[in-house]
């Protein structure tokens, strides 16, 4: 990566990322792929988020499902770690709580493939700027 030499270049990087981020914000593009965010703060990792993330990556790969699995910070639901947020293009993001491996499997099979919600999803209760 070359250094960003001035403000105009910083804006260029921002714009370059914009398409990817706006897809995440709106998730309305039909070509967009499934995005999966795994809450990987200390509390998440302590409750097994790493295993969940590894499982999601290998399992989605095995099933040939195109999805972007990424780590993010604390989502705030400490009582239900590990937490995983799944955004299917065109739909609102859904947060799943207490996602250990069996639950991750259920998410892939029922929600991502079947489009059905599964028990125990966490309703979002905040707005961001």
């Amino acid at each position: 990566m070359n250094k960003i030499k001035n403000l105009a270049e910083l804006r260029k990087v921002k714009e370059g990322m914009q398409s990817r981020m706006s897809m995440r914000e709106k998730a309305d593009s039909s070509e967009a792929i499934i995005q999966i965010k795994v809450g990987m703060a200390t509390s998440g990792i302590a409750s097994g988020a790493k295993e969940t993330m590894n499982y999601l990556i290998t399992e989605l790969d095995k099933r040939n499902i195109k999805a972007l699995v990424m780590q993010v910070g604390d989502m705030g639901y400490s009582y239900a770690e590990p937490t995983v947020e799944v955004t299917i293009p065109g739909k609102d993001p859904v947060v799943f709580g207490e996602v250990k491996i069996p639950r991750a499997q259920e998410i892939i099979e029922k929600y991502i493939i079947g489009g059905e919600l599964i028990e125990g999803i966490l309703p979002a209760n905040y707005r961001s700027i």
Partner: peptide, 9 residues
């Protein structure tokens, strides 16, 4: 917390 739980840190 605007980016917390949203971006890859």
């Amino acid at each position: 917390l605007r980016n917390c739980g949203f971006i890859d840190p």
